[in-house]
Design a protein around this nucleic acid. Sequence first.
DNA 1: TTGGAAGTTTAGCATTTGCTAAATTATTTG
DNA 2: CAAATAATTTAGCAAATGCTAAACTTCCAA
Lengths: 146, 146
Amino acid sequence: MAFATKKGASAKLRSAAFKRVRADHSAELAEDYVEMIADLIDERGEARCTDLALRLGVANATVVKTMRRLQVAGLINQEPYRAIFLTSDGWKMAEDGRRRHALVEKFLLALGVTRETARIDSEGIEHHVSAETLKAMAKFLARNGG
Amino acid sequence: MAFATKKGASAKLRSAAFKRVRADHSAELAEDYVEMIADLIDERGEARCTDLALRLGVANATVVKTMRRLQVAGLINQEPYRAIFLTSDGWKMAEDGRRRHALVEKFLLALGVTRETARIDSEGIEHHVSAETLKAMAKFLARNGG
DNA sequence: TTGGAAGTTTAGCATTTGCTAAATTATTTG
DNA sequence: CAAATAATTTAGCAAATGCTAAACTTCCAA
């Protein structure tokens, strides 16, 4: 090591944040898919791969592959060539996501950004907001006409 | 298609947000690495793979591989077995990241979360905050003792 | 009831991002 | 200065996430 400075302890603390971000990313995609499946079921009675692909902006085959992973993860159920259903774990995740998403979006609106920006930014932000920060956002909303 | 509902136009709009998130993710890693290289150079005079690996919580070989990509992207310069230097593009990215990062972290603190949460959440959030939202955060800070 | 359009799946590929183990180079020290 | 220690690189692997093209089902309509 070129410069013998203290490290180790502080570095380990620091690295924890990055590890959390990396872990978030794996969960993130599952959450987005599951949330959208829930939306489709509510809006039109069933969720189909094609609709998912269209809304997420990915290819059909990508959705299919992801569905297999989600099934293995116990979040959805699907028979070949049939519509997609959420398991109870899936519904729980979807509803958690929706709640968080809605709150972040409302918060951004209350902060004064445009509707469009709130919609886009909340999509990226929602997965990285801890329970504590979420609570602080809720408190802010309560104070500022949520 | 099972239920003939309007789609297409609204779906394309919707999918844009997800596409932005996916695009953000590719940039995100580069930004984290570059920002940390800048920190190391400022703190201790040079940036070494080992220190990066320690702080980011990844294996050494992972850093090396990423360095090659960053070099191809024109963000860093490095001779074999030597320290890492930022190009001017690299410095620009690092400074952008630092500014955004610091602002988001201060904003979270002003919102009332603990120091630790602000540190961790800002790490994940900073990459998904648009210029407009950033400006709104700055305005909030100006009003609320930033 | 059957033929074609629409939807789904499979196969095969690429990239990113991580890992461990082994080989190589630099540095420090006895 | 040579041996030991530390740092770096290479090689080879794996998983996640994306793609296109081709094959297969399903379903509606003539």
